[in-house]
Each structure stands twice: as structure tokens, then as C-alpha cells.
Design a protein around this nucleic acid. Structure first.
Lengths: 190, 190, 190, 190
DNA sequence: TATGAATGAGTATTCATTCAT
DNA sequence: GATGAATGAATACTCATTCAT
């Protein structure tokens, strides 16, 4: 499906990202997406099957870039806390620097706008973090609770801080980020 | 003269809640809402100005019921931890028992589908919790960090647990809820 | 159909007149008419069969008041020119003083918004003028041309002067009205 | 790529003309217009912004064709009466041969269905006639009265004759048209 | 008599998608 | 591959009219 002219493919994804963020899925018609990408509406259908496919592909692409960021510089041989710290700060960085992408993910995750199939595909990237937690639990450093809880109390709160945007992005700034990390670590460490 | 009954008003809100949850705002047309509420499409406009107004009013109503639940049995004279515990468990209860409502709030909070005005009106109910935190900080029991962080690491994670629904609702069950609360408390206590 | 409470009947006709003039037939819904008349929409149907009937009745009423005015003080024994003068000035008076009514008649006469039946009923009031013209023709004072032409060149032009409203009402004022009458008379006299 | 053809644009204007004449603006819905033009409702919006724009454009187009007709063969060097005769007969011709167009103009001019802007644009074509009248007045051939009066008693009556259609079109036929012109001229000549 | 509630059919307009070049 | 034209089906919303009191 994806042809040699990646320019248009990418422009379409970018336009979709912007419009869905600003107006919501319900007010991001194909015609507007095409216009913003400087492309004919018909052209969209050369690269994507339909609107759902366009959204799905954007979701998967962003999820992938998110994961790539998350494990940047991470090595599974690091001690548990150090490893967790690396990943957590990476994610905080991503939220702070890739605001559009992060907002889009939030919208997808709280809305029935993504195929179940795409959703699953987006999830499978987190395995290294789950492995790290398992190791931490074996070593008695991390509480013996479900992965869901661990995620809910460490990574997920970052989404809220992002959503509060104007008033709260400061919470993720270099110098005040320590407090946030401390909360995260305190909530899971034994 | 027929008299305007609350039945229809409520049926419309209920239908909207269900459809927006199941299909998303973008696929919850007025015609479907009317059908589900067993009412003519035109009737909607006797009770609501337009679709936006319908959504806004539903949001505000649910936010209000949420707050009412949250502070049920709470007394500002309770010791900080006890007070926090009361509120936190109330909210966990709400999430567990009012799944539809909770999912709708998540969708609203991560989507540009709500008026800024309605959004603000929905926020003003949390004051007692903020007051409690302030007291806890003065007493040296709660970390001296911003309200956003406190909220992000105590209340907000519950939304994630809810969203994971099938796999994770167990995390909020009576017996395993303690672990979740412990995470919350650990992340904010000094 | 018309009941004892003429107040509401009249208020409805008045409201219709105003709304149709200001917004056009296409933007004068029954609900607005009811509101302006300070009456329930359902009440309209106690006095009128439907919207068409309401418009028709208003048309006929105004046509009748127009004719009454037109022949005010007219006596079929007057000499032809004097008689014509009387009627013509009466009509000019009406156009000048009953602007709303005159505009409504213009709209009805240039639009398919009136039943053919009502239209015919509105026409039959002009007989005395036609009789006068016939007499004038017999006396050799008025050109031997069709009634349509006589009307077109004497009475009808007044509608245009009215329609030009702001810029042109002056043409119908007491002192400048003579010029207009002179045109009318010149165009039909032998 | 299919190319936007004038056929559809014209068909739409024609359909609108017919429907507005036969049923009135209030009963000429876009769906009927589309059907009559053998086009999808959505297609209308490729050529016109909305219904108002469609009506406006039709009005302006017809006004332009009317003016073109009116001054066909007219030369500002002609003697006043001859010049007036030329224009007047041209207009009578137009009314007789372009009945649909003439009726539409009447409806527009007696109804709040046209934008003020479009209305103004439609007016500016008559200048040569006004110039002619001015010259006639300077030469002492035409009464020193306002342009409104001159128009009301010469051109405007033709609209009435048209409106009476069935019974009266004969008044505009070649042989009986002289009587009508004579009325017009008599009413303005000194 | 009078009403506000209720509604089915309709209105202008938009949308995701396909057609023809 | 790329496009603007074209469209049937849908969308939010309105209307003339009727219902139930």
C-alpha cells in the first residue's frame, strides 16, 4: 500500500495528528486532512484503505516511536532502580517534547476510535519494562503487585500532567521532575 | 396540556452516555440517541439546545454525581491519612460501580468534545480534597509538591485501572484494593 | 372558525403580517408567529385551518381594508376626472400610511404564496373603478384600452414608489404627490 | 480527473428559476432543485456556497441579461423620444419573451429573499436610461420629476402586465403594444 | 378555549468514498 | 500515481401540525 512517495504518506499522518488533536476525531473530515496535507482527497485512498485505517496506522506509528524513545539507552543489565529511572525519564522526556503525539495517544486510549487489533499491536512494545519489573519483584525491590498497578502508578500519571498542559508542564521540567519521579518510585518500591 | 417529564430528559442523557461510550462521540448521532431513548429526534431539542449542550449537560451531571460520591462520609476534621483514605476509597468505589460514567468522564477529559466552560464547572467540586492536602502538607505528612502531582499519583491512576477493564478491574476489588491504596499513599506521604 | 375572542385572531394576523414582511414567507414559521402574538402554536389552529389558510385570510382582510380606503368618499355620480382623482389619492394615501399592509400585498401579488381562490376574492373589490373607467371611455375622456393597461399605468406604479421606500416615499408626500397624479392621468386621458 | 462543466452550473440555475417561480422560494428545497437538474444534492455545493448564494447568483445573472436586452441597439446619440422608444420596446420584448426570468425578478424585488449586496449589484445597469432621462429633461421634453417617478410610470407597469399573464399578455403583443407605449410616453412627456 | 409537549417528515448541508481522466 | 468532480447516505436541526390535559 505504501508507495515510494513517502512525502505524501507522512504529510497525511501529520495532518491527521494535528486535526484530530485540535478538533477531535468527530471534526477531522478527510477533506480537511487532505487540504492540510496539500493533497487531493482521492489521494488519501492511495495510501490508506479508509479513514479507520489512516487512524490505526497513525496510532501504531506513534506507539512505535514512543517505545523507541522509552528504551533509549536502556540496558537490561542495569540494576533495577537505575533501569526504571532510565525508562521513566525517557517517557517523561517524550511527553514533554512530543506533546502532539502524546495527546493523540491519550485520545486514542480513552476513546473507541481505534481498532482492537491496532490497540493490541500498540501494546506489545512494553515488554522490556514488564521484564524489568519482574526482575525487581524477584529481587524484593518492587512490590509484588500486578503490572497494571505498577503502570498505573508510575507511567500513567505522566499523561495527566501532560493533559494539564499550561499549568502543569512545569512539573515535567528538568529541575522539578525529580519530585515526580520520587512519587513514582515511592509508589512501587517495597 | 402534556407536562414536560423528567423521564425523557433522563432517558436522553442515559442514551447519550451509552452511545458515546460504545461508539464514540463521532458515531453517536442524534437519531441514534433519540431511538435509544425511545423519543423522536425533534424531542431532543425540547430539552437541549443542541448536541453540544446535551453533551455538556451530561458531563456536568456526571461530574456532580462523582463529587458527591467522592466526599460521602468525609469530614474535614478527620486526621489527614484517614480523610485521604475515605476519599480515595470512595473514588475507587465510584470507578468500580459506575463504570459507564467513569469511562465517559475519561473520554471527555481526553478529547476536545467538551466546552471549556463546562470543563471548568466540572472542576470546582474537588476543593475539599485540595484543602485536605494543604493541611497534610502543613502537618508534614504529605510531600510539599503541587496539587497536580498529588492528583496525578493518587486519583488519576484509577482511571487507567478502569480503562483496562476486563483484565484489571480485579485490581479494584475489595480485597486487592489495599495494594492500590498503598501505592497511592506511598507516592505522596513524606 | 372565528371565535368570540377576536383579540387572539387579530394578534395572529398582525404577527403574520410583520413576520412575512420582515423575513419572507419562507422564514416566518408558525412558532415565531405564535410567539410574536403571545399565543401557543396550538392556538393558531383554533382560528385557522393551517398556515395557508392563515395567509389567505390575512390577504383577504388587507385587500378588503385596501378597497374600503380606495373608495372612501367616492360617489359614482362624480365627473370622471374628479372620481378618478378621488380614488387615486385614496390609494396613494393608503400606500403611504399603511406601509406594512401595502408591502404584504406586493409580496402576495408577486409570489405563489396565495391560493388562486383567495387571489380572485381579493380582486372583486375594484369594480367601481372599472365602472368609472368604462364611463370615462364612453365619454371619450379615457383612452379606449384594456382595464389592465389602465391599472398598470395608474395604480400599479404606486407600488414601485412604495417599494423604493427610503428614497422615494417623498414622491407620495402631500406636496409632491401632484406630479405623480399628473403622470397617472396623462397616461390614460385621451 | 473529471472536469467541472458549465452544464451543471447552468442546469442548476435553470432548475432554481423554474422551481422558485412555480412553487415560491419557500417551497423550492435544494433536494428538488438537485433532482430537476439531474444532479446529486451534494453537487450543488460544488458550484454554490449555499442556497442564498445560489439565489443571489441567479438574480445577478438574470439582471445582467435583462440589462443587455434593454439597451440592445440603443445609441446615446439618438433623439430622446427615439432612444426611450428603443429601450422601452426592448424591455417589453424581454418581458414577453423571457417570462420565467421576468417573473423571477418580480419575486425577488418584492420579497426579502435577496441579499442587499446582490440587489445593489443588480441595480447599477440602468445608468444609460437615467442619462437619457436627464438629457430629455434638459431639452424640455421630459417632465422635471424624479427618476423614481419616471421609472414607476414607464417601465414598472410592464411588470403588472406580465403578472396578469394569461389575460393580459396580449397587451404586450406586437400590435397592441403601441397603446401601452403611448401610455408610458404620455405619462412622462411634458 | 387554550396550552406546552411531542412528533414524523422534511431542510440545508456535510461526509467518506468513488469516478473519470 | 494523482487529481478534482461527483455522489448517496448521513447529519444536526426545524417545521407544520397534533396530542393530552
Amino acid at each position: 500500500m505504501r508507495t515510494k512517495c513517502n512525502d505524501k504518506y507522512d504529510a497525511l499522518l501529520e495532518a491527521t495528528l494535528k486535526l484530530v488533536n485540535d478538533c477531535g476525531f468527530h471534526d477531522a473530515p478527510m477533506s480537511k486532512i487532505a487540504k492540510l496535507a496539500e493533497v487531493s482527497p482521492a489521494t488519501i485512498y492511495l495510501y490508506f484503505e479508509n479513514k479507520q485505517d489512516l487512524i490505526n496506522k497513525l496510532y501504531i506509528k506513534i506507539k512505535a516511536s514512543f517505545s523507541e524513545h522509552a528504551f533509549n539507552g536502556y540496558d537490561s543489565n542495569l540494576p533495577v532502580k537505575k533501569g526504571f529511572e532510565t525508562i521513566w525519564y525517557n517517557i517523561a522526556d517524550y511527553k514533554l517534547n512530543k506533546i502532539e503525539e502524546s495527546m493523540f495517544l491519550s485520545q486514542c486510549d480513552n476513546t473507541p476510535m481505534i481498532d482492537e487489533k491496532a490497540r493490541l499491536q500498540g501494546l506489545k512494545h512494553l515488554q522490556p519494562l514488564l521484564d524489568l519489573w519482574e526482575r525487581g519483584q524477584k529481587e524484593g525491590i518492587i512490590k509484588p503487585i500486578s503490572n497494571y498497578l505498577l503502570y498505573a502508578y508510575t507511567v500513567y500519571p505522566l499523561s495527566f500532567l501532560l493533559a494539564m498542559e499550561q499549568n502543569c508542564l512545569s512539573c515535567l521540567n528538568k529541575d522539578s521532575r525529580l519530585a515526580a519521579f520520587q512519587c513514582a518510585w515511592d509508589s512501587i518500591k517495597v
